[in-house]
Write a protein that binds this DNA or RNA. Sequence first.
DNA 1: TTTT
DNA 2: TTTT
Lengths: 144, 144, 144, 144
Amino acid sequence: MNKVVLIGRLTKDPELRYTPGSGTAVTTLTLAVDRRFTKDTQQKEADFIPVVVWGKSAESTAQYMSKGKLMGVSGRIQTRSYEAKDGGRRYVTEVVAEEVQFLEWGAKGQNSGEGGFGGYGKEDSGFGSSFDDMTPVDDGEIPF
Amino acid sequence: MNKVVLIGRLTKDPELRYTPGSGTAVTTLTLAVDRRFTKDTQQKEADFIPVVVWGKSAESTAQYMSKGKLMGVSGRIQTRSYEAKDGGRRYVTEVVAEEVQFLEWGAKGQNSGEGGFGGYGKEDSGFGSSFDDMTPVDDGEIPF
Amino acid sequence: MNKVVLIGRLTKDPELRYTPGSGTAVTTLTLAVDRRFTKDTQQKEADFIPVVVWGKSAESTAQYMSKGKLMGVSGRIQTRSYEAKDGGRRYVTEVVAEEVQFLEWGAKGQNSGEGGFGGYGKEDSGFGSSFDDMTPVDDGEIPF
Amino acid sequence: MNKVVLIGRLTKDPELRYTPGSGTAVTTLTLAVDRRFTKDTQQKEADFIPVVVWGKSAESTAQYMSKGKLMGVSGRIQTRSYEAKDGGRRYVTEVVAEEVQFLEWGAKGQNSGEGGFGGYGKEDSGFGSSFDDMTPVDDGEIPF
DNA sequence: TTTT
DNA sequence: TTTT
């Protein structure tokens, strides 16, 4: 059993790539998730969690999400390792999305300033989109 | 282990009560949670999940949430039974919230028509509020 | 978003049926999940959560699980209603399994008394089985 | 919202330490969690997830869990960074336990061979222990 | 109607 | 650096 649910904001615009082999879409992003217990002595009050999205959802995420937008993710924790430039082994722990839900909309460039929208609600005819059509892909194919 | 996470919309305004004994606040509501696999033959495409919120969060929920607003809930599934008016035993399965997150704001009456707000985003100075200060209370005290 | 994870014990042997239409296997069971906060004044210290398992996992569950065995389940909460014999509408809230994990093994009849096994560990060559091949089926097909 | 549930086996005996400041107990361990979709081409079929347990549960975990034992954990994902010996910044993503459940028992040294116990079931008078009395502690206090 |  |  390996289950994760996150609600947080993108720290940057998501990055969409395609695997060299099968050409599967894969989007990477980092979610800033606010902590509940913000002790005053605790300087950092959010966790910055790396997320990987595969398949059609990867493309939707890259299209509709951008820096600062709110997003729900469910999935699992994955660990992998790679060789760093200094020859050392680095260990990566990240969340592989199984379902994504857009809680605020807005592509990159939108909503930046004078009056773009950005809310998510009745007025915007927005609704939480939920995707689940991701194709898990072999680890070896990850292009990063 | 008994863990639940939901994101959904209130089907009605939340109902705030206080326990007869200790006077603890308790709010009940129903979340409509959209299903992911909407097969065309499937007429109902949401689940309507009863949620109970205790303590300070109960009051926040009653204050800031209303019909149609989007809300995140984590908690656990609780079952209990009661005697119906016809003398039969009824079994209730509901979610007891441990943490609530308001993904859209707006009290009852707000946002109804001409131009109230309702979005949740930077423009609205909105941010996802997360509460966790609920006091679990004895089953017997539930006033419904 | 609608996610549930449970670890609990079967209150009875699971019941395996097949849908009239497509003949899909469906197993129903109830998990007794111990509560964490057992206040002394609280007489009931477990929740009894109805679970539905579909497809190949339904058959595995019926085959390997029995009353008292420990089981992990992940899935989602589903609500539905039906007409009771007295003509009244009854509302059901249950967990639909997406993944099951057998934490103790033992078919019905096994492990009952003089020395059957029942543990789950190295000695039993047991390992946690995890299934995910369930076929969601139309609500209307549920044969109960 | 930041929720995690894991069921997996300890890759090594857990390590119990105490924070220099307040003397709070903290146990670190790694859970090997089997993946569901084991594609044949995929050499690694488990994720190795670092877990931190605080407080009284830290001591229980160190006392009752050991290499190979099966354990359930719920909690949240935490990220932090530290300076490596080579001067570079390293980023750590780990799970902070909020609840632990021992699905197999056995201290270090026990269950090693000829006939130690290790199962978890009626025969062993075992029952799933669930702890939740952990005291979250300041990041700066983590002694590693 | 409940499990250890 | 990994468990069954």
